[in-house]
């Protein structure tokens, strides 16, 4: 089973940051029954990590695993496009009870 690992970079505890996290977790819960990891990095508290990750815009989600890495910026409010951009399994690939 493929384990998905994400790092979500945000800047401060803003509404936009929270929206992005909620959207990411919703997508993962609904599309990744095999499990996933999400790490939140607040660039305003850890600018060094944002530097290491070469993050410019926030929110940015980086899919760390599986490779290749993918990056999506924005609050992920369009779930369909966000799922495609992050390379999540399509809804019809899921077991019927999770569709």
């Amino acid at each position: 089973m493929t384990v998905y690992s994400f790092r979500l970079y945000v800047a401060g505890k803003t509404e936009r940051s929270q929206t992005a996290e909620v959207n990411l977790r919703f997508l993962c819960d609904s599309r990744l029954p095999g499990g996933y990891e999400v790490e939140i990095v607040d660039a305003s508290e850890r600018p060094d990590l944002a530097e290491d990750g070469r993050i410019l815009a926030t929110p940015t989600v980086v899919r760390l695993a599986p490779l290749p890495q993918r990056r999506v910026i924005g609050d992920l409010s369009d779930h369909g496009r966000a799922a495609v951009a992050l390379g999540l399994p399509a809804a019809d690939e899921l077991p019927p009870d999770r569709r």
Binding site: R16, T58, R71, V72, S77
Partner: peptide, 29 residues
């Protein structure tokens, strides 16, 4: 604050965003 290297990377935008991370990095430096 080197933002050049990330320019070549594939990146898509979904929803609202800002340059908060850049400001944090500049402020840090």
């Amino acid at each position: 604050v080197d933002v050049s290297a990330s320019l070549g990377e594939e990146e898509s935008a979904v929803g609202a965003y800002d340059f908060g991370a850049l400001l944090s990095r500049v402020g840090h430096a």
